[in-house]
Amino acid sequence: MSRWPIDRFLLWLLRGTATIAGAIVLLIVTFLVMESLPVLQHVGISRFFTDPSWHPTERLYNLTPMLWGTLFAMVGSVLIATPLGILSAVFCRYYAPPAVARPYRKLIELLAGIPSVVYGFWGLVVLVPLIGSIHPPGPSLLAGIIILTIMILPTIALVADASLANVPQQYVRGAAALGLSRWGIIQGVVFPAAKSGLLTGVILETGRAIGETMAILMVCGNVVQTPHSLFDPIRTLTANIALEMAYALGDHRAALFVSGLVLMAMIAALVAAAEWISHGRIYG
């Protein structure tokens, strides 16, 4: 190491801070496990899927309707937001004149920072009544999908924009020199070259869609049921935690921590997938 004592002191100080930063994830997992352990021990994992319903006060702990809720909302919004977000990035990079592209990108950057509670509020006062007038009751899976789409769209749009920007210009020049048309170049050269960046974007937006709580809580109606149509109200895992944490005690509280663990597992799987795709770092 270094011969300066102050260097050694500094290094240990920095190592200390880094250890704290690195340990938070472990701490989170430890606490989730510790808090959910009681219910896992005397209820068991299988009952979270086989119980007749979710009535934690009556010791019935079926999480499947909420899992379906999370899954449907997530899949729906990712399916809509991905093409929209990628097209919006393509617009920014290859279609819009510079005078339009710059403010458009600023707009998207701004939207990435709007709090979920504001999106949720807008959904509650504008979107839900609108859907309700088409097909009551209004708070529904559809409302959730639309709000989630709006929320995750900036994520995929910005990541896609950044990965399109990273496509080497020599590819575009080479393709143009071969007399390829604009969409021909985008589809045939730009997309394959930006593939891993685009996939990372999809993973990031999926993570956001799974983890989103407030907005979806505000527009989905929160009825514990497996939805049969787009207009059925649903409750997601995250909304369930937010709704019941305030009064949950004992096993009920522990069961909520179990859903927290499930969420963590989903995110860990996504991070692993991203790692696998990019063989590198994913955030930022």
Partner: peptide, 14 residues
């Protein structure tokens, strides 16, 4: 990396 992906509600639980 993992921490940046943790849902905010899980931070709330923690």
């Amino acid at each position: 990396d993992v921490l940046s992906g943790v849902p905010s509600i899980v931070f709330g639980l923690f």
